[in-house]
Computed example of a mutant assay.
Amino acid sequence: MNQLFEKLAGMTNGKAMVIGLFMGLAYYFAMYDDGSALTTQIGVLNGQLQEAETKKKDTEATLQEEARMKDAVGKLSEQYAFIAKKLPSELKSSDMIRGIDSVAKMAGVSVKMKKPGNVTKKEVVEELPVDVSLEGTYAQIAQFVYFTSNLERLTRVLNFSLAAPMDDPNKPLRFEGQVVSYKLAPEPEKTDKPQGQTP
């Protein structure tokens, strides 16, 4: 160790400078790190972080869309349940006549005639009319119309007339009209034509 120090102490400034320069170059090329490797790693990590942020935003957007869709499906289900009550898929004239009798009893009118009419098919619904003739006071007939319009299933009173008897003003008023209920029309049957044939 002492010999090394003696040699170093005995060197001239030029030699020391040359040896120092060689050692500096060897260190620079062999071991020196100017931070470029760290910069590269930081760039890679930043890229991965941006990808993760993008995925996070996409996931949040997907979750929000899923929540919105669930809410929309829930609302549609409620609306369908409401429409299914108002527009049943099955409805018979006998059910309508029972409903008319029930409403007439609540209103206090006297039913003189009930005659089911022909079913009218529309694009989405079918109309089931019942011709009705009844007697009662103005208030009773108004209640009949009101109760009929507020039945659970969709029902309307159409084409009605109200007449007072000519011979005796004390007799009850006469109401004639149609009570129309609606039901969902069945889906049209699809006709599958064999390929290659023209209609």
Rank of each mutant, 00 (worst) to 15 (best):
E6K: 14
F22R: 13
F22I: 11
M23E: 05
G24H: 15
L25I: 12
Y28L: 12
M31R: 10
Y32M: 08
D34G: 05
L38P: 08
L38T: 12
T39G: 09
Q50C: 10
T54F: 15
T54Y: 15
K57D: 15
A61W: 14
L63S: 06
E65D: 15
E66H: 14
A72Q: 14
V73D: 06
G74K: 13
K75N: 13
L76S: 10
A81N: 12
A81M: 11
F82R: 14
P88N: 01
K92A: 11
I97K: 05
I100P: 11
A104C: 09
K105Y: 11
K112L: 05
M113W: 04
P116D: 09
T120I: 08
V124C: 00
P129G: 00
P129A: 00
V130S: 02
G136T: 04
Y138F: 05
Q140P: 13
F147T: 01
S149A: 04
R153Q: 00
L158Q: 14
N159D: 06
F160C: 03
A163W: 03
D168K: 13
D168C: 08
P172I: 01
L173H: 03
F175V: 03
F175M: 00
E176C: 03
V179T: 02
Y182K: 02
P186K: 12
P188I: 02
K193N: 01
